[in-house]
Design a binder for these strands. Structure first.
Ligand SMILES: [Mn+2]
Ligand SMILES: [Mn+2]
Ligand SMILES: [Mn+2]
Ligand SMILES: [Mn+2]
Lengths: 228, 228
DNA sequence: TGCAAGGTTTAGGCATGCCTAAAACAGTTC
DNA sequence: GAACTGTTTTAGGCATGCCTAAACCTTGCA
């Protein structure tokens, strides 16, 4: 056990290291690939110099392994903390959506703050109320109570689906309010079934329900699907 | 408008000034009686010197009127902020109790943190879900959306009820887990009807449901009732 | 009126977490 | 292998909010 309680900033750093480290967030085990100071600075909205300072502190707490100029990766205990925060975040998003009627474009901002301030009792209560959900409103996987992050088995990017195939959206990989609102209008959300008609330079022509249209690459990029 | 966003510490100071100022928390209007540095220090769990520092800052923000050696009182805008925080707190307690099944002895600690981190949208959602309740689980009055604190009309302390009378508990004035658990076991909660049998030195002999027993003054002190 | 006691403020410090500017480094390119 | 470029770290600062110790008021009681 490193420390009884970490600051909000420390928790956000750890969570962001997890999210930036593909092999740590996409697969369940292991410390993940090293993450750069600059990458963290951009995601956290602070300057690189501030990141360096925090990494030193987290390193002393044995929550990360930090090699100057080489990047950071989570230690075993840092990984646990990051998953705990991520679980709070995604459970909260799901609860706000299901229990309180928040739109899926609104949940992220509220969860981003609350994730640091709810107790384990609160986590437990909402997880039970929700029936221990697997995914949040955007289709992101929720770490389990045991802090295992299930893997996204057969999910692939929409752009990797060949024309003629049908697929079901499982994940919309953004928190951007504008994009999410657009997706809502186009009926593109987890569970939606679509047919890939044709790939073009500017995007993919698809059919959803009765509509068909050209989905710009910028949006198509965000969609993860499983083929029917 | 003093400032877009206040710190958690600032909000707690303002709320505590409100709660310590009888005429401000028991009656709806006015700035209330001045509150002492030491009183605040005790309630907030900090040293008096720290309080002095914060009062200077709040005074510059025009949230309080602070006269060195004389005490503080809330300004109009400080009063609004304090009521907003108090509304968050009491709505949260009520929601945790009703929607998530928290015991009334557990709600305070959770609400104490969350009150600073929920959005106005969240406040609105839970207020609606609850049907705009008047009181929290302890019987404390919840400030309205317009930030008016209703007054506790005919409520009086149990100790002021003469023997032979019957009364209904409207408020249990503590957040102490032990006392609240004890009250639970004795079936002393808002809504409970009791008969005052006899006043003694060590407390009051009362009857609740089928039981009658001597209620020690320390507990009796906490009970506010309306006579039947 | 004078003083002691208790409450309050000032002075000086510490930790956190952010910033800018400047120095140091790593990886690539000639 | 030296220079360039972009990244990262160091150095120095600022704001917040807490602390202790010491000086300072205010009061109430001789
Ligand atoms: Mn966060
Ligand atoms: Mn999400
Ligand atoms: Mn609080
Ligand atoms: Mn209460």
């Amino acid at each position: 056990m490193p420390k009884t309680v970490l600051s909000e900033a420390q928790e956000d750093y750890l969570k962001q290291i997890l999210l930036l480290s593909p092999s740590a967030s996409e697969t369940p085990e292991g410390p993940g690939d090293p993450v750069s100071t600059q990458g963290l600075a951009e995601r956290l909205g602070v300057r690189p110099a501030s990141v360096t300072g925090m990494l030193k502190k987290l390193s002393e707490l044995r929550l990360v392994e930090y090699e100057p100029y080489r990047g950071v990766r989570l230690t075993e205990s840092g990984h646990k903390v990051a998953l705990e925060v991520l679980r709070h975040h995604r459970l909260l998003e799901t609860y706000l959506h299901q229990a309180l009627g928040y739109g899926w474009e609104q949940v992220h901002a509220e969860a981003e703050r609350l994730e640091h301030h709810i107790s384990e009792a609160f986590e437990q209560k909402i997880a039970e109320w929700l029936g221990h959900p697997e995914r949040d409103p955007h289709g992101d996987l929720i770490p389990t109570v045991e802090l295992a992050l299930p893997k996204n088995a057969q999910a692939k990017k929409l752009l990797a689906v060949v024309a003629g195939k049908t697929a079901t959206i499982v994940r919309v990989a953004t928190q951007d309010t504008g994009s999410l609102n657009l997706c809502t209008r186009l009926k593109l959300k987890p569970g939606s079934v679509l047919a890939v008609l044709e790939h073009q330079l500017e995007g993919v022509r698809i059919q959803v329900h009765q509509d068909h249209f050209l989905l710009p690459s910028s949006l198509a990029e965000l969609l993860w699907v499983v083929e029917a």
